[in-house]
């Protein structure tokens, strides 16, 4: 009986194989296949429309940001890159990343990701001490501790809060109402912030804060100058293109 089953299976396997390889190959698929073969795919790609009541403003701000990047930020980052050695720039990035530890750890904790919180804490302790104020990343290199990016927008998303209308921020780029409002609680946890705290913060005034953030951004961009251009290259219509990429990316981050 077992043999028979096996035999039948092999036989059916063979027969489907012969069916699947027809002698004639039709290259020109009929355009009426819309309701046939394509149908299954359409369900998969039926994208939910992104809520976009501010599309007019968003479009204008996208153009502004694009030009600002092209004519101001990129040349500055290029000059900076030319002057400062890559290893130094990597260290600067590490330093800022290390400072954002409270944001990541808290949001990991709020989402019940205890192991990630533990890894983040380990990273902070090791990198702040052995890694000299976070300029180096021995936690990853020697202890195999990975960073876990989480922010309050992701925490809200985790608990089912929708993204709300899409909003393009000046210079900071694509965002949405949920993520925009989430910047406030995250700022309260950020040691870079200039507001009065009972503990040390990197900046004391608004202008110092702006300077520090600009430096951080320029440094970050200098490490991968081509990134934006590579993404932009496939855009037919920049605004909806970037909007969709942002919303899809955030959805993925929240799911993780």
């Amino acid at each position: 009986m077992i043999l028979m089953f096996t035999f039948l299976f092999t036989l059916s396997g063979c027969s489907t194989n012969t069916i699947e390889q027809p002698k004639e190959v039709t290259l020109n698929q009929d355009r009426d296949d819309f309701n046939g073969e394509l149908e299954g795919f359409f369900d998969e790609f039926e994208v939910e429309e992104i809520y976009d009541p501010f599309s007019g403003y968003n479009r204008a701000m996208t153009t502004f940001n694009d030009k600002a990047y092209e004519y101001v930020i990129k040349p500055v980052a290029k000059g900076y890159k030319y002057v400062i050695h890559e290893e130094v720039r990597e260290s600067v990035r590490n330093f800022f990343n290390n400072l954002y530890f409270p944001i990541r750890a808290t949001n990991n904790l709020l989402q019940g990701k205890f192991y990630n919180t533990y890894e983040e804490t380990g990273r902070f302790i090791i990198n702040t001490t052995v890694g000299i104020l976070g300029f180096f990343d021995p936690a990853k290199v020697h202890f195999n501790l990975e960073a876990h990016e989480e922010d309050f927008g992701q925490t809200l998303g985790f608990y089912g809060v929708g993204s709300g209308p899409h909003i393009v921020l000046p210079l900071l780029g694509p965002s949405n109402l949920r993520d925009l409002l989430s910047m406030y609680p995250d700022a309260l946890l950020s040691p870079i912030d200039y507001t009065e705290r009972s503990y040390w913060t990197l900046t004391d005034t608004w202008s110092e804060y702006l300077g520090a953030r600009t430096f951080e951004e320029v440094n970050y961009i200098s490490l991968d100058m081509e990134k934006y251009d590579e993404i932009k290259q496939d855009a037919i219509d920049l605004y909806p293109y970037l909007r969709d990429i942002y919303e899809q990316y955030r959805k993925k981050q929240i799911e993780e």
Partner: peptide, 30 residues
């Protein structure tokens, strides 16, 4: 595909997702 084309593999890629961003979805939207 139900029928295999002579110059194509049996299994074909129809979309690529890079960190959650689908090439096809993005093109559809724009």
């Amino acid at each position: 595909p139900k029928t295999k084309a002579a110059d194509k593999d049996e299994w074909l890629i129809y979309d690529v997702e890079i960190i959650g961003v689908s090439i096809l979805k993005t093109d559809r939207a724009q």
